[in-house]
Every structure is written in structure tokens, then in C-alpha cells.
């Protein structure tokens, strides 16, 4: 029984660090999306990947690294704040842009730079 506990205790920091790394990678992906997408409203979607997926995974990773339960409570508080304030901020942004008359791009978008990319790849 104690062997299983030992295995868990040795694997926990590695798993935590790995989850932190995955979360940071998701943050980079979301940023790349914000840089690439053509329009304000679509950039909002890319930013929400950072707000939800990256934050959750990184905070779970940090909770696995935490030395005491107090730290876990603080991490849970941060997660709750991010999840409550993130959509409110996004909605306020989208609503302000819509009220100000910013028109979204509608319909299928294909990047002409993507075709040159595929040509290079082939």
C-alpha cells in the first residue's frame, strides 16, 4: 500500500509540471489565434481559449505542485475569479463593439496566404 503511495508522491510533481507546461502551450496557441484571425469578434473566440482551457489546466497543475491546502484554496479562488469575470469582460467587450457599430465579418473565410503555405508544403 505504501508503495502505491510512494509512486503517487513521485509522479505528482512531474504531472503537475507537465500540466503547467500544457497550459502555457495553450496560452501561446490562443495568442497565435488572436494574432491571426481577421476580425475583432473572431479574435474574441481565440482569447477565450486562454481564459478557460489554459487557465484551468495550468491551475490544476499548480495545485498538484502545491505544498499545503492553503495554496490549493488560493488557486481555487483564482480559478473561480477567472471563470466569473472572464465571460463578463468578453460580453462587455462584444456588446460595446456591437453598440458602437463594428460590423462582424460573416461567411466562410479562407486565407490566401494558406494556399501558398500548402504549395510550399507539397
Amino acid at each position: 500500500m505504501s508503495e502505491i503511495l510512494n509512486v503517487i508522491m513521485t509522479i505528482k510533481p512531474i504531472l503537475g509540471a507537465l500540466l503547467c507546461l500544457i497550459g502555457a502551450g495553450l496560452a501561446v496557441i490562443g495568442t497565435v489565434g488572436v494574432l491571426r484571425f481577421p476580425d475583432f469578434y473572431t479574435r474574441l473566440h481565440a482569447a477565450s481559449v486562454t481564459d478557460t482551457g489554459a487557465a484551468t489546466i495550468a491551475i490544476v497543475g499548480m495545485a498538484l505542485l502545491a505544498p499545503s491546502w492553503l495554496i490549493v484554496f488560493k488557486l481555487a479562488a483564482i480559478w473561480l475569479f477567472l471563470f466569473l469575470t472572464g465571460p463578463t469582460g468578453s460580453h462587455a467587450l462584444a456588446n460595446a463593439a456591437h453598440t458602437a457599430g463594428l460590423q462582424p465579418v460573416i461567411g466562410r473565410q479562407r486565407d490566401r496566404a494558406g494556399e501558398s503555405d500548402s504549395e510550399e508544403a507539397s
Binding site: 489565434g33 491571426r36 473566440h45 462582424p104
Partner: peptide, 19 residues
């Protein structure tokens, strides 16, 4: 999250925004 991540990193931009 998955389709949005795929749209972010795929080589050619392929999205279909709508209201």
C-alpha cells in the same frame, strides 16, 4: 475548446463566423 485550438494552429485559415 478543441475545434477552436485546431482553427488557431492549422496552416490555412478556415473559419465560418456567423451571427
Amino acid at each position: 475548446n478543441w475545434p477552436v485550438i485546431r482553427a488557431c494552429v492549422s496552416a490555412d485559415l478556415d473559419i465560418n463566423p456567423a451571427l
